[in-house]
């Protein structure tokens, strides 16, 4: 199908974009790469009065290789994330995850901010942000605030963003030199949305493990019980593999019953921990 009629605005600066959003936030939609929004428009699942195209705001395209953190602008595309040396050094998890996002032509347009703001529960980058303890910068004419990833995701396609706010950047704290970061997922075909996925971030010898899951709840979630069991205790691997399947509560789904997703998550954790064996 074709998209419904809408008006199109293209601000030249972030200030202008925030101003437009403060006036049109309720019946307007931000478009960045458009790789999630255009299908929704084509299917007429979304019908905003106007699109505010922030795609050309150069200020949101930077990757800042900071002291103690890396800050990724909301308009950094998936392909930029995959080719950034700064990202590859600090967060190999992101490069691994990006390889699972759709296909090259989509990765040339899709952005990290767009993916996070869309908040599809099966999206890769949301789970990565949760595992990496990211903070999101939300800006509006009222000011800027930082929201932790764990507080950002509020449900299926729901986030902490107010109607007048723009997600402008994601800040990721650097990990130690021995940081372990492993991403894995199961999808029916390459590039499809995952049925389930898992991101592990830990320090050496499984200190401070963080296990984020995608596709198994209404938002990306942390497997906190399994994290506690595994902390500094690789000997508990078998128990952890069992526990992570019990810890989640996937919704009924005609294609993939909850028991299947529980089993997938156990398999993903087993594969992940196997990679860490000497």
């Amino acid at each position: 199908m074709k998209a419904p009629d809408f008006d199109y605005l293209r601000p030249e600066t972030l200030a202008e974009a925030m101003d437009m959003l403060s006036r049109h936030g309720e019946d307007g939609a931000i478009i960045a790469g458009g790789q999630s929004l255009l299908p929704l428009l084509n299917f007429r699942l979304a019908g905003p009065e106007r699109l505010i195209d922030i795609g050309r705001l150069a200020a949101l395209k930077q990757i800042v290789d900071g002291d103690g953190f890396v800050e990724i602008g909301a308009l950094v595309r998936h392909c930029d994330l995959a080719s950034s040396e700064a990202v590859a050094r600090a967060f190999p998890l992101l490069r691994q995850a990006v390889g699972h996002i759709a296909h090259p032509a989509v990765r040339h347009r899709g952005t990290i901010g767009g993916s996070l703001a869309m908040a599809d529960p099966a999206a890769e980058l949301g789970a990565c942000c949760l595992a990496l303890e990211a903070e999101m910068s939300l800006q509006s004419v009222r000011g800027q605030r930082w929201v932790r990833a764990v507080d950002f995701f509020a449900g299926i396609y729901e986030t902490a963003l107010a109607p007048d706010e723009i997600l402008t950047a994601v800040r990721l704290p650097r990990r130690g030199p021995d940081s372990v970061q492993i991403f894995s997922e199961v999808a029916r075909r390459r590039g499809d949305f995952a049925i389930a996925g898992l991101a592990l971030v830990a320090d050496n010898h499984m200190a401070n493990p963080r296990l984020a899951l995608l596709g198994v709840a209404d938002r990306p979630i942390l497997a906190e019980k399994t994290m506690a069991l595994l902390a500094n205790n690789m000997a508990a691997a078998d128990q952890a593999i069992e526990l992570i399947g019990n810890e989640i509560d996937p919704a009924e789904d005609p294609a993939y019953p909850p028991a299947y997703r529980r089993q997938l998550v156990r398999t993903l954790l087993r594969r992940t921990l196997m990679e860490l064996l000497p």
């Binding site: 199109y8 293209r10 458009g34 195209d53």
Partner: peptide, 10 residues
Amino acid sequence: VRGCLLLAVQ
């Protein structure tokens, strides 16, 4: 790019 996922105005 996907020609169906990009508006002409973009």
